[in-house]
Design a binder for these strands. Structure first.
Lengths: 246, 246
DNA sequence: CGAACTATTGAACTAGGTCAAACCCAGTGG
DNA sequence: CCACTGGGTTTGACCTAGTTCAATAGTTCG
């Protein structure tokens, strides 16, 4: 049933006791940094947050909805989707455990968010997030950092969509996903999303995604199982992705 | 199928120091603009800002540079550019007077910024911007708003690049530009950028941009002058752009 | 087993890319 | 005043990467 990704046991109960929070704490830099590694920017809001589960393919919020909540993924995969009247679809991003979404600023969501797999979320009231950011400059800074990362990713995606070939798109996608998935040792990447989602993320058709994957397999770069891909030749993959990271 | 290889990359020359800068310049340009555009989030930093002029096609900063400054455009047009090793180019955005750029968060710029036309900029030290945001929650909120707007635009662009046809891309582009240019009464849009820039922004080739513009002209939707386009039938244009705005 | 999906593969087609030639100015210099 | 040069732009003729259409093959589930 839970064949998907790492299932951090998270049910609402065992929440680490919220540390007493002093907004202007003069904690030593090192302590601050250490804590930063393990905590997320909205730690202070845990008391007012709630946990929810969403079934596969259910909508979390839809395009145009007022943005009342911000979310953090505990387990599962989420896609954010933009839709045109005639049904053409663009998947803006795939979100993994630990990622935030829904808090991208404006008053209403410009994208819908949907569960790719069964998903467990932590949900924070936007009003509280705003208030926290207003009173805690460190939180505000970290939120800015998150926004910047999203913007950077969006721009990388623009390059991909505007200028890369099908092979480069697929290679970039796999390469990127491998880097983001924590437990992708031995190069195995679990693909929670179907070919259609991948196609709509990369600006291709389902058929081209299939053919291109097949092509990469023929060349010995990857192996394909239905729900996962294994990277056999990471170097080639990165080269094909035109990825300056490697 | 290597996309658009512009003739050459004329950027690489040793870039001379910025032409002119004066810490407190009360240029007439600025006075004029101040009148029009009420206040901006960095108003408080004006004392530590400086004004600079950049010639057409000069680089303002390049991909990978440490992000030391944030900029606001007083006059002219700027493009932000992402480059691949083999010369393929993606123009992420065109920036107009009043727009901010360079402050998108991370420690170094993921895009280069270049002057499309001769440009006058106001430049703010990032350190000061950060400090101001830390101490003034209202500023921080407005900066977050700017970042959100950029993210939203980037996503719209992803839809365009991933799923729209050439005609839709051109129509969207013109439509969007018309909405952003203040003085586009009588539907006349001044195009500061050349066809190559437009092509690299829309994920097309120069030739396709030309042909598509010609096609829109044939259909009576627009008129084309060398440096500008006049919208003759805004309704059709918006319809072609698949623009929910109309 | 069969229905309903999703993925894969093949064959034909097309939107947009590539290559190449003409055009159109704005300078420049005779 | 005009020819000449050099940049961007426009148009035409052809080509191909990726789409579309259609048929096949696994998988899941009742």
């Amino acid at each position: 049933m839970f064949a998907s990704l790492q299932t951090i046991d998270t049910r609402s109960g065992p929440r680490p006791a919220p540390i007493a929070w002093s907004p202007r704490s003069a904690a030593p830099v090192e302590a601050r940094l250490a804590r930063r590694a393990e905590t997320h920017p909205l730690e202070a809001l845990e008391p007012s947050a709630s946990t929810l589960c969403v079934e596969k393919d259910r909508e979390i919020y839809s395009q145009g909805d007022p943005a009342e909540f911000s979310y953090r993924i505990l387990s599962g995969t989420v896609r954010t989707v933009k839709l045109m009247e005639d049904g053409r679809r663009q998947v803006a991003e795939f979100l993994l455990p630990g990622d935030f979404f829904g808090g991208d600023g404006l008053d209403d969501h410009d994208l819908a968010a949907e569960a790719v797999s069964a998903v467990v979320l932590r949900r924070y009231p936007r009003r509280a997030v705003e208030a926290l950011a207003d009173r805690d400059a460190d939180v505000a800074r970290r939120l800015r950092g998150l926004a910047s990362a999203k913007l950077r990713a969006a721009r990388e995606q623009m390059m991909l969509l505007g200028r890369k070939t099908a092979v480069e798109r697929i290679a970039s996608f796999l390469s990127d996903l491998a880097a983001r998935l924590p437990n992708s040792r031995d190069g195995r990447i679990a693909l929670a999303m179907g070919r259609a989602d991948i196609a709509d993320h990369l600006g291709l058709t389902i058929e081209t995604v299939c053919r291109t994957l097949a092509c990469l397999r023929r060349d010995g770069v990857i192996e394909i199982a239905r729900e996962a891909v294994s990277i056999r030749d990471a170097r080639s993959l990165h080269a094909l992705a035109c990825d300056p990271r490697h």
